[in-house]
């Protein structure tokens, strides 16, 4: 295994692993979303990007965020843990902003094809619930002060 599998450095106790326990299930769901969003996004970007650049561009952003979070949770070091946290916050903001925009102004999202359209309705609202579960998981497992 690579660096960082042992306890974290220094005085504070190590944070619990993001790769085991509930983190394992979290990684599973993130990996599924990463695969789904990436494949969909790749297809959209290659085949029909000019039809709806905004929605498809946002799909691509979402795909990248899901991929980074998946990798960060698997890497399981204090630094990657911060990366996961930042990306989950971005994910939550993204799904709330894009979701709200798509409800208020559906015309702007004509193609109905962002992963975050209507708060992720096409994906059983998992994109909305997942960052909340993820952030809660990171909070519960962080190093005790």
């Amino acid at each position: 295994m690579a660096e960082g599998t042992g306890p974290a450095e220094g005085t504070s106790p190590a944070a619990a692993s993001t790769k085991h326990g509930a983190g394992r299930a979290l990684i599973t769901v993130y990996a599924i979303l990463a695969v789904g969003a990436s494949a969909r996004s790749l297809y959209e970007l290659v085949v029909k990007f000019d039809q709806a650049p905004l929605a498809y561009g946002l799909s691509a952003v979402a795909a990248v965020v899901y991929c980074v979070i998946t990798v960060a949770l698997v890497k399981d070091t204090p630094r990657w843990r911060r990366v996961a946290f930042v990306c989950m916050v971005a994910e939550l903001v993204g799904v709330l902003v894009v979701g709200t925009l798509s409800v208020v102004d559906p015309a702007a999202f004509d193609a109905k094809s962002s992963v975050w359209f209507w708060y992720g309705r096409d994906y059983l609202f998992i994109p909305l619930v997942l960052p909340i579960l993820g952030l809660n998981f990171l909070r519960r497992t962080r190093a005790a002060r």
Binding site: H20, G21, R24, A25
Partner: peptide, 11 residues
């Protein structure tokens, strides 16, 4: 632990 079964449940 239990999350091994949890992962399979997700599948």
């Amino acid at each position: 632990g239990r999350w091994g079964a949890g992962v399979v449940c997700i599948a």
